[in-house]
Each structure stands twice: as structure tokens, then as C-alpha cells.
């Protein structure tokens, strides 16, 4: 109940923001009868109506995970964001080992297995990408090997 209402409300507000953003779109002199504003505004209106429906007629509450699982999920998101930033400057092997190991640990909390999964995946995938598929990956950070 509550989740649907909250999501519906957020969606409605976002839809209004989307409409407001769409009205600010500049039209050029090369305009057609509809113009670049109309369709986004239409989408915003339909979205806002659907959002309000969710507020007014919510479905039963889904089973949200317990707080600890939310912790694990947030850790996973942070790991993935960090991985996104680290992939370019730090090369493939180090960040992949860490990220894969940490994700593996979040799924099944056994440290040794997770470490093995991390190392195995990073080396295995590196071989597949580099030699079988020929993608140009940076192995280690440039500073480390000169």
C-alpha cells in the first residue's frame, strides 16, 4: 500500500518536473506544426495521471527485504559505482577482482570462496576478453608498470 502510494507520488512529481522542463525547450525557426515540446508534455501528462492512479488505488505491499539485506544492497551499489570510476584509471584486473569478490560475498557470505571467485573471474574474463574477443583492455595502472 504505502510503497505504491509513495512511488506514485514521486512519479507524479517527476512527471510535473518533466512537463516543466519540456516547456522550457527552445523552439527553432525550423519548426513543424507540433514542435519539440508537444510530445514530451503529452508523455508527462500521461505519466502524471498513471502516477496519481497508483496513489489512489495502490496494490498490496510487496515483501521488502529486511534492513540487513538493504545494507547488503547498498554495499553492492557502492561497489558498482566505485568500480565504474576505477575501471579506467586502475586497469582491469585489480578493480575487477575486488568488485567481483565483494559482490560474490554479498550473495553468499563465505570469504574464501568469494575471494576465489573474484580472482578466478577477473583472470578468466581477462583472458576471454583479451585473447578470444580481442578487446583492448588495460591490465594494470600505467604508473605501476611504468
Amino acid at each position: 500500500m504505502a510503497s505504491d502510494r509513495i512511488f506514485g507520488l514521486v512519479a507524479t512529481l517527476l512527471a510535473f518536473a518533466f512537463i516543466a522542463g519540456a516547456t522550457q525547450v527552445q523552439t527553432s525557426f525550423l519548426s513543424d506544426p507540433v514542435g519539440p515540446k508537444f510530445f514530451p508534455i503529452l508523455i508527462g501528462i500521461v505519466g502524471a495521471i498513471s502516477g496519481m492512479f497508483m496513489v489512489l488505488r495502490p496494490d498490496p505491499e510487496p515483501d521488502w527485504p529486511v534492513l540487513r539485506t538493504f545494507g547488503a544492497l547498498s554495499v553492492a551499489v557502492i561497489v558498482l559505482v566505485a568500480y565504474a570510476f576505477a575501471l579506467k584509471p586502475l586497469g582491469f584486473l585489480l578493480p575487477t577482482t575486488l568488485a567481483a569478490g565483494l559482490l560474490s560475498y554479498q550473495i553468499s557470505p563465505r570469504p574464501r570462496m568469494a575471494a576465489l571467485a573474484g580472482i578466478g573471474l577477473s583472470v578468466g574474463l581477462f583472458i576471454v576478453f583479451k585473447f578470444a574477443l580481442g578487446l583492448g583492455l588495460v591490465v594494470f595502472p600505467k604508473g605501476l608498470i611504468g
Binding site: 512519479a11 525547450v25 527553432s28 525550423l30 519548426s31 510530445f39 514530451p40 508527462g44 500521461v46 497508483m54
Partner: peptide, 23 residues
């Protein structure tokens, strides 16, 4: 609502007809 989320995301970027950036 899901369709609108998708369509809304598709609107982001340069409008191909007028060449103006949107959203």
C-alpha cells in the same frame, strides 16, 4: 507509467527535427 518512463527517457538529448537539446 512504465511506458511513460521509457518514452520520457527517449526524449532526452538533441531533438532530431529542430536540432535543439531537450531535457
Amino acid at each position: 507509467l512504465a511506458s511513460c518512463i521509457g518514452l520520457g527517457i527517449a526524449m532526452v538529448g538533441i531533438d532530431s527535427a529542430s536540432g535543439m537539446p531537450r531535457l
